[in-house]
Simulated scan of single mutants.
Amino acid sequence: MTDSTLKGLYEVVKNRKENPEEGSYTCYLFDKGLDKILKKCGEENAEMIIAAKNHDNDELANEMCDLIYHMLVLMVENGVSLEDVMDILEQRRQKIGNLKTFHQVDKES
C-alpha cells in the first residue's frame, strides 16, 4: 500500500460521509453510528489476531486491510484527519533507535 492508496481510501470514506450513496457499506456504518463502527473495529482486530496466531499470512493481510478500512471510517466519524495520524507516525519514525529503559525487577528479593 502506498501513501497515495491510503489517502485515496480516506478520501473515499470521507466523501461517503459527506455525500451518502444508497447501498454503500460505508454509508451504512455511518448511519448506524459510532457503536457499530467500534464493534466492526473490534471484530476485525480479533480476526487479525486469529489469522496471525494461525500463521496464515494471506488471511492476516486481508484482515489487516479490513481493520485499516474500519479504522479510517472511525477516523472520519470522529474528525481525525489522516494527516494528524501520519504526522504522529512520522514523529515516531524519527525516534527509531531511542530505546526506552525498562524498570528491572529484582526477583531475588
Results as ranks from 00 to 15, higher is better:
72 L>G: 00
70 H>Q: 14
68 I>C: 06
55 H>S: 14
59 E>T: 10
52 A>R: 08
56 D>S: 07
71 M>R: 06
45 N>C: 10
66 D>C: 06
65 C>D: 09
68 I>L: 10
74 L>T: 02
64 M>W: 06
52 A>I: 12
62 N>L: 10
69 Y>Q: 09
51 A>S: 08
46 A>L: 13
51 A>C: 05
46 A>S: 12
52 A>W: 08
58 D>T: 13
47 E>S: 08
66 D>Q: 12
64 M>H: 08
66 D>N: 14
62 N>E: 15
84 D>R: 04
66 D>G: 09
78 N>Q: 10
85 V>R: 00
55 H>L: 14
61 A>T: 11
54 N>R: 14
50 I>T: 14
62 N>R: 14
56 D>N: 14
79 G>H: 01
65 C>V: 09
41 C>G: 03
57 N>P: 02
70 H>G: 01
68 I>Q: 06
46 A>Y: 07
50 I>H: 08
60 L>K: 02
67 L>G: 00
87 D>P: 00
56 D>M: 06
60 L>S: 03
51 A>D: 01
64 M>F: 12
60 L>P: 00
71 M>P: 02
84 D>W: 05
71 M>C: 11
69 Y>I: 09
87 D>T: 13
73 V>D: 06
87 D>N: 15
78 N>Y: 03
79 G>S: 04
53 K>L: 15
62 N>M: 13
47 E>G: 02
63 E>K: 09
70 H>Y: 13
85 V>E: 04
47 E>L: 05
84 D>T: 10
61 A>R: 13
50 I>W: 04
86 M>E: 09
87 D>W: 03
84 D>E: 15
45 N>V: 07
65 C>A: 15
82 L>I: 08
56 D>Y: 04
75 M>D: 04
50 I>F: 10
52 A>Q: 11
72 L>A: 02
77 E>T: 01
42 G>Y: 07
73 V>Y: 00
68 I>E: 04
79 G>P: 02
45 N>F: 12
58 D>H: 10
68 I>K: 04
43 E>T: 05
63 E>A: 08
60 L>E: 04
54 N>H: 11
72 L>R: 03
84 D>C: 05
44 E>P: 01
60 L>T: 04
47 E>A: 07
46 A>W: 07
57 N>D: 11
73 V>P: 00
50 I>C: 09
46 A>N: 11
76 V>A: 07
50 I>D: 11
52 A>V: 10
66 D>V: 03
73 V>E: 02
70 H>V: 13
74 L>I: 01
41 C>A: 11
78 N>L: 09
63 E>V: 02
86 M>W: 05
73 V>M: 01
41 C>M: 11
47 E>R: 05
59 E>G: 07
59 E>V: 12
63 E>H: 04
54 N>D: 15
77 E>P: 03
59 E>Y: 05
86 M>L: 15
49 I>Y: 10
73 V>T: 00
44 E>S: 02
42 G>V: 04
59 E>M: 11
48 M>P: 02
49 I>C: 10
62 N>Q: 13
53 K>E: 15
71 M>D: 02
63 E>D: 08
49 I>Q: 11
86 M>I: 09
53 K>M: 14
67 L>S: 01
65 C>F: 12
49 I>H: 07
57 N>M: 14
65 C>G: 15
67 L>A: 08
60 L>V: 01
79 G>W: 04
50 I>N: 08
76 V>M: 05
53 K>T: 15
49 I>M: 13
